[in-house]
Structure formats: C-alpha cells, structure tokens
C-alpha cells in the first residue's frame, strides 16, 4: 500500500496564511489599530506597532488603557476564531478558495476583564492568547501582553465568548 504524498510546504503555508489574512482583513477596527499577527504553525502572536494616536497620557507618556483593553480583546477573539478555522482546515472541511468569500463567523464577547500590571510604554506591544476552554456554545480565553520582556507582562486579560452558530 502506498501512502499519499505529503502536500508541498508552500501549498500548506499558502492555505494557512490565506485563512489568517481573510480573518484579519475583514475587521476594520483591527486595521485601524494596525494590529498584525505573526504565525508559527498554529501559534499566533499579536503585534501592536506603536503610534501617537494610541497615547492616553501625553505627560508620561503612556498607552491609553482603552487601547490595551482593545488589543487584548482583539488578540483573544482572533486566537479563538483561528482555533476554530484551524480545526476545519486540518480536517479538510474548509475550501481554501472560499475562505475570503464566505462571511466571517466571529465569536461574540460576553465579558472581558483586563488587569493592568504596568504602564504601557510608547513602543510596540505583543500579546499571546490561550483558549482554556472551548465548548459548543461558550469559550474562555486568557491573554497576556508584554513589551520588552516576555516575562514582564504589562497587562493580562480573561474573556468569555459566545461561539458562532453553525460551527458543528
């Protein structure tokens, strides 16, 4: 018996990057804040490049607390959406050509708690989220954000989300 030849790496990368791009480009607010995502396999790192318009305290200066909250929430919701997409993609249920056309089915935030640990400095920020529980209807996601040192978080957050319908 012969095994199926593995797909060429470019084909896999193109499919995964295409799916991620479709997910991100659909959300105007993510574009407005210029939040980028770095993908390594299934792991995502959200990047918030510094910009003057993100400042909340001009005298310190420091990032606006609302920016930090929005960044964490975006990182959490994209991680959760990505984990759903990834499952479908790996199971071969997702038509790569159709990703961009079909409407985005995003989870809805039920609640989100932000813990401000340090002042957000006027420089790039990074965040990684972890889906701690993903059920049929609800999900719980934790997210951590840092700037210079991964171990020195400047904020963390936990959110509960309502899963999009028609997933199963």
């Amino acid at each position: 018996m012969t095994r199926a030849k593995p797909e060429p790496v470019q084909v896999i990368k193109q499919r995964r990057d295409g799916a991620l791009k479709a997910l991100l480009s659909g959300v105007p607010y993510i574009q407005y804040l210029d939040i980028q995502f770095d993908r390594r396999g299934d792991e995502l790192t959200a990047i918030l490049p510094f910009d003057e318009k993100l400042i909340g305290n001009p005298t310190l200066p420091a990032l606006h607390g609302g920016v930090t909250a929005a960044f964490l929430e975006v990182a959490a919701i994209i991680e959760l959406s990505w984990s759903i997409l990834w499952e479908e993609m790996e199971a071969g249920q997702l038509d790569p050509a159709g990703i961009a056309e079909r409407p985005l089915r995003l989870p809805k935030t039920i609640d989100f708690t932000v813990d401000y640990l340090r002042t957000g400095l006027p420089r790039d920020a990074y965040a990684r989220a972890r889906v701690n529980r993903s059920g049929r209807r609800y999900a719980s996601v934790h997210v951590e954000a840092w700037q210079d040192n991964r171990a020195r978080l400047f904020a963390q957050g936990t959110g509960h989300f309502l899963m999009p319908e028609g997933g199963e």
Partner: peptide
C-alpha cells in the same frame, strides 16, 4: 466605519466601546 468589529453587520468593535468607557471612568 473604521471602528467596526463585524463587517457583516457593521456593529462597532467592543474594544472601541471599552476605550470610551475607560476614558469616561478615568
């Protein structure tokens, strides 16, 4: 329109609403 979170419905992103609530609270 720049602060929309769900393009299918045109609903504002929660993050923008959070930013407003954070500013008003401060």
């Amino acid at each position: 329109l720049r602060f929309v979170g769900d393009p299918a419905t045109g609903v504002l992103h929660g993050g923008a609403v959070s930013a407003l609530m954070d500013t008003a609270s401060g």
